[in-house]
Amino acid sequence: MSEDGASRIPRLRRGFRFQWEPVQSCHVLLYPEGMVKLNDSAGAILGEVDGQRNVDLIVASLQLKFPDENDLGADVREFLNDAVQRHWIEWL
């Protein structure tokens, strides 16, 4: 495992579900009796969290989708660490 955790694999915690809500026009994270509305970037990042790919692969995939954004890595790592703190996701 590298220093900055680039090879770590995030996954949604048990009981959490990520989905698109057409009426609200946004992605949401659903959990027992709760819901978080996600902004576009949070939605884009969590959409890549599949319990299979590590942080490096997630960053690479997002970079392909958003070629105009410079160095997404730092933002993605910050968001994922924050999501772990909030107990939305966990490291495998």
Binding site: E21, E33, G34
Partner: peptide, 8 residues
């Protein structure tokens, strides 16, 4: 259809 996402 109206947008409800949480159901108890």
């Amino acid at each position: 259809e109206m947008g409800a996402a949480q159901l108890g």
